[in-house]
Amino acid sequence: MNTRIQVTVNGVQYSHMVEPRLLLVHYLRDVLRLTGTHVGCDTSSCGACTIHVNGKATKCCTMLAVQANGCQITTIEGLSHNGDLHPLQEGFKECHGLQCGFCTPGMIMTAADLLQHNPQPTENDIRHALEGNFCRCTGYHNIVKSVLYAAEKLKEHAVVH
C-alpha cells in the first residue's frame, strides 16, 4: 500500500505517494531527480549517500522515504546559497579535495555536520569524523586540508559578522 509523504528538500516542499520499501536515496535520485546524492554500497559503509535530515548527517541508503515524512532535508544541491559556494565546497576546490567527484557530495555533507559540532577541528578530529566516508582517489590528505580550509573560512566569517 503506497503511503503519502511530505518532505522539504533544499527548501522546496514535495508531496508524493511512495511504496514503503522505497529507500530515501532512491526517492531523492529517481523521483526528485536530485542525483548529487550517490549510492556506493549496500551496507551503510561508504557514505556517498550522506545528506542532512533535520540538520544531521544521515546515510540515506539506510533510511526509508516514509521515515523522512515531515522532515527537512538538505542535499549537496542545497548547500550553496545564491550561487555562493559553501566554505566546504570552496575548500574542496581550493585544496584539490576531490578527483572523480563521486564521494565528494557525501564527504562534504559529513564534514558539514562535523563543523556544526566542532567548528575548529584538529586534523585528527577530521580524520575520525570522516571514518564513514570512503574515497578511493585522494588518499584523504587533501580532503583533510579542505575541511581545515573551510573551518578557517568559517572562523573568518564569524569574526566579520
Binding site: R29, D30, R33, L34, T35, G36, T37, H38, V39, T75, I76, E77, L79, S80, L85, Q89, F92, K93, E94, H96, L98, G101, F102, T104, P105, I108
Partner: peptide, 21 residues
C-alpha cells in the same frame, strides 16, 4: 591551476551513468 571540472562535482551536478534516466 585549480580544477575546471570541480564545480559540477562539489555542487552535485556531476553526470554519472546511473544518474541518467
Amino acid at each position: 591551476v585549480k580544477r575546471v571540472e570541480d564545480k559540477r562535482f562539489i555542487t552535485g551536478h556531476g553526470n554519472y551513468t546511473d544518474d541518467i534516466i
